[in-house]
Design a protein around this nucleic acid. Structure first.
Lengths: 213, 213
DNA sequence: ACTTGTGAAATCGTTCACAGCG
DNA sequence: CGCTGTGAACGATTTCACAAGT
């Protein structure tokens, strides 16, 4: 039985890069782009771009390349960002507050609908339009507004408990900044962003290149 | 010509995860751990753990597993975090200020030595121990203190210029939060963290699982 | 009995190279 | 002639399975 063979995950990750580049090209007034041009500024090859896009459909015209604004529309549709998605944020500390104010999410079609925290002093206030609620109010708000995405910026010790709460409330995807591995049902996607871990990766590469080079 | 065959990059990325888990085990008083236990809480298999560690040396004892604190020491040495590393941060806006206050870096052996910004109003102030300097002072400070790592939290438009400045000053690794692809010399490592891009990935997974499942 | 380290096999992802369209 | 879409070749990574150590 030959699997339907979904796209490789790295290919999906590159879709975001292509989209970003295309949006810049569109802003510059470009109408068409070739796989080679698209690959040029990013860190891939023309063949990679074509193969990646081909997993999702036939978007180009031989001899002409791709229509910039059409391809943008296609990619947004594929990524699910052609409509605005509501997001909840849990943990309005250092990082959480910064993420609440971050404009980049809005630009890409994500709207933070509500924030949650356990701290009495933070609950009730608002950070840039977004109100901070008690954690206990999370299930009701998530369900009423049919929110499917969440951002977690809580301490590691609190992470699993919050994840359970989110999953119970019907959340389907979690962007996790807590340095903890989450145990969630298989129909929930977790995207871990380990800030210190990324620094460790850099450190490794710098260290190895220093001793060999 | 059979390449010296360095470790696969995904294996290096998992080292950070193993280290995190080991530190937790050590805090709980554990002395020994098997590849199976280590794999259990994280999302891998015992074979994967053994293979990953074996790229860097022979750290375990057949029949007994790994000594927790020894393995921690080995991993820190490999990642280059057995000594504290100085880091500079460029861009003390929303995200930058939050990263300046983030405790996770310190815990993992990274010390933010100085921060830089273009805004007149921010320069001269300090955020949690760290002074904010003019961008023009960056080369001198980086060189004098021999800083090799940088965190960039600047707008996309400013990213390439800042990257050039950092590379010119001798920085060897950049953690890049700007939504832009950086062009840097081949001996400089860039680790891109595209926050909006991560949300897009989540959105994709949630969207595809909703229509199929 | 349980565990590591490791070749060999299998899987997954990328690059190549070219047929066919505009 | 330049460009896309794609099967086939290649390379990288993961999984398997087992010999050897405790």
């Amino acid at each position: 039985m030959p699997r339907p063979a979904g796209p490789p995950m790295p290919a999906v990750a590159r879709l975001s890069l292509y989209l970003r580049q295309l949006e810049q090209l569109a802003a510059g007034g470009a109408e068409r782009v070739s796989s080679r041009q698209l690959a040029g500024s990013l860190r891939t090859t023309a063949a990679q771009v074509r193969k990646d896009l081909a997993y999702f459909g036939q978007f180009g015209q031989p001899g002409l390349g791709y229509n910039v604004s059409d391809l943008i529309r296609h990619l947004r549709r594929i990524l699910g960002t052609d409509k605005v998605s509501k997001v909840v944020l849990v943990g309005a500390g250092n990082l959480g507050s910064a993420l609440l104010r971050y404009r980049g999410f809005r630009k890409k079609g994500f709207e933070i609908a509500a924030a949650f925290d356990v701290s009495r002093s933070r609950v009730g206030s608002a950070i840039g339009e977004v109100k901070i609620h008690r954690l206990d109010d999370l299930p009701k708000i998530v369900r009423d507004q049919r929110v499917r995405l969440a951002i977690m910026a809580v301490p590691a010790e609190a992470a699993q408990g919050v994840a359970d709460l989110l999953c119970g409330a019907g959340i389907r995807g979690i962007l996790n900044f807590a340095p903890a591995t989450l145990d969630v049902p298989s129909d929930v996607t977790v995207d871990p962003v380990d800030l210190a871990g990324h620094m460790e990766q850099l450190s490794f590469h710098v260290a190895s290149r220093t001793e060999e080079g």
